[in-house]
Design a protein around this nucleic acid. Sequence first.
DNA 1: ATAACTGCAAAAGTTTTGCTCGAGG
DNA 2: CCTCGAGCAAAACTTTTGCAGTTAT
Lengths: 167, 167
Amino acid sequence: MGEMASGGQSAEQAPPSFVELATRILESSGARMTVVRRILCEVLQNAEHSMSSDQLLTEAKKRDPLISMSSVYRTLKFLSDAELLRQIDGLDGERRFEKADLKTAASHIVCRDCGIVVSLSDPCLAIRETPAIRAEGFHRERISLRVEAKCTELAETGDCKRRNRAK
Amino acid sequence: MGEMASGGQSAEQAPPSFVELATRILESSGARMTVVRRILCEVLQNAEHSMSSDQLLTEAKKRDPLISMSSVYRTLKFLSDAELLRQIDGLDGERRFEKADLKTAASHIVCRDCGIVVSLSDPCLAIRETPAIRAEGFHRERISLRVEAKCTELAETGDCKRRNRAK
DNA sequence: ATAACTGCAAAAGTTTTGCTCGAGG
DNA sequence: CCTCGAGCAAAACTTTTGCAGTTAT
């Protein structure tokens, strides 16, 4: 769960972790990777799903109860500007965040029944769309697919496993 | 620009206009197509691009200066719930709206240079993604692609025609 | 010593709601 | 008439900002 391997500094196969990426960006702009920022980055790094600003604050407070919403938003803004975060729109315009790592494309299903957001993998999405985007006179920088859907399991059985996990 | 043709009431090829659709939905739920609502619907119907709540109010006020923001939001909510509107996320989380008509899929390019939103056509998008969505246990209801991009023209010539039109 | 960071509180936006009056079927 | 809709103003949120004390270099 913590850092592992990556003993030397020569290999080029070591995938930099989210916290490492954030640290680089921060330091390259004269900023510091402080305790508060590290906690927020680590929460985002370890999050299995996208989070709202509220959830992020709640999680961070478990590690340091004094962390404030200002820091959450300041950090989210910073990481977003650095393209390290992706924003996802949940139900009712709810904004959620998740680490973007290096992918340029991402797809998500937003469940209309319970509001959870599920990631969907489609490596070809960006490539397929490139010609049409170019034809419009644009150069693609980031691409995301959003699917609103109903839960099959809920419709058939009246209940849904996913529903029983925190939003 | 108004209604044309559709003389009889027998043909099944008459595509109901946005205002007509809205009227049906309204009346079927015991509500009324009032003057205010009609103005708002007509503005949305005639809009060439997606609009913010603010723009919608501004346009509507040109026809009736007394229209209030409450009515804008109430109408937007109503039409959204009825699936007659599509929400698009502009830059910086700005919410924009456009009529959805009957399409289940829509694609938009958001320009990072000037913030405009351009529609993109890809009729196969929904079909291509269906298997993956089903595999996750969901039944697709609506699908939208969002592309953030840079303007090629601006990069090459230092200016952009689109930029000079109102956001 | 200097520059950056944080929490707090206030501000700024945006969207929703309660209320009362007016309009419409 | 009696219901539904509209505007106004206030409330409710979410996100941003100014400030003053604190921390790290």
